[in-house]
């Protein structure tokens, strides 16, 4: 029982979702499988919502422990825990209609903390793309050199200043993006699709069980 039921659940819901994308009602009306598949995707949202609570328990345990034992950096952990509580309470108040004060505060907190900190982390990529290029693009061997020249040609073709140097850079860059780039993307995608299919199939059919953490 303990082993079989999870495998049956996986198989049944997986097949419903898959078959709903292949078959349809003969008369063009509403199709029962499509309805169930839609229902199941809603269920995923619900179950995932519960999982957020579970994962948050982990945050509370790890950082609660640090605060309780006054380990180094406990002030940071305390900040983290306080932020969870404050954002959760204000967010819930705002979302469940506690009035415009909470809605506005929630929006301001999002706009001035979560959103700019996220944008700043994302923007760090500009620095890292520069240092990665500096470190990695050395003509160590043929492969590395090919990669380096392709990257430089495309950069010169994209920046307005490239055109000032030589007006053919943009068309070279376009060709590189359209042809060799597409070739690589396509082939890697085909290979990965075959691998992804086999992995999903083994799980769907219960041949692979490791993802459930082994068998007790």
């Amino acid at each position: 029982m303990r082993r079989e039921i999870p495998l049956v659940i996986t198989f049944v819901v997986g097949m419903i979702v898959l078959l709903a994308r292949i078959f349809t009602a003969a008369d063009g009306g509403e199709f029962i499988l499509a309805k169930w598949a839609g229902e199941l995707t809603d269920w995923v949202i619900i179950v995932s919502a519960f999982a957020v609570g579970l994962a948050s328990v982990n945050l509370f345990r790890i950082h609660g422990d640090i605060v309780a034992r006054k380990r180094p950096g406990w002030i940071n952990s305390l900040t983290l825990l306080a932020a969870i509580v404050v954002f959760a309470v204000i967010g819930i108040a705002a979302r469940f209609g506690a009035g415009p004060f909470f809605s506005e505060l929630n929006q301001n907190l999002y706009d001035s903390i979560i959103s700019p900190l996220g944008a700043a982390m994302f923007a760090i990529l500009a620095f890292y793309i520069a240092s990665a290029a500096y470190r990695a693009f050395r003509m160590r061997n043929l492969e590395a050199s090919v990669m380096l020249f392709a990257a430089i040609l495309v950069m010169l073709g994209r920046a307005p200043v490239g055109e000032l140097i030589w007006n053919q850079f943009p068309s070279i860059a376009n060709w590189l993006v359209d042809i060799p780039n597409t070739v690589g993307q396509r082939a890697i995608m085909i290979g990965a699709a075959i691998g992804g299919f086999a992995t999903s199939l083994r799980i769907l059919l219960g041949i692979e069980r490791g993802h459930l953490g082994g068998v007790e």
Partner: peptide, 20 residues
């Protein structure tokens, strides 16, 4: 970093409470 992780987690809790 800790503020951001906590804020995002709290925000996610409120979003998911609403979707439940």
């Amino acid at each position: 970093e800790h503020l951001y992780v906590g804020a995002a987690a709290g925000y996610a809790i409120s979003v998911n409470a609403k979707s439940i």
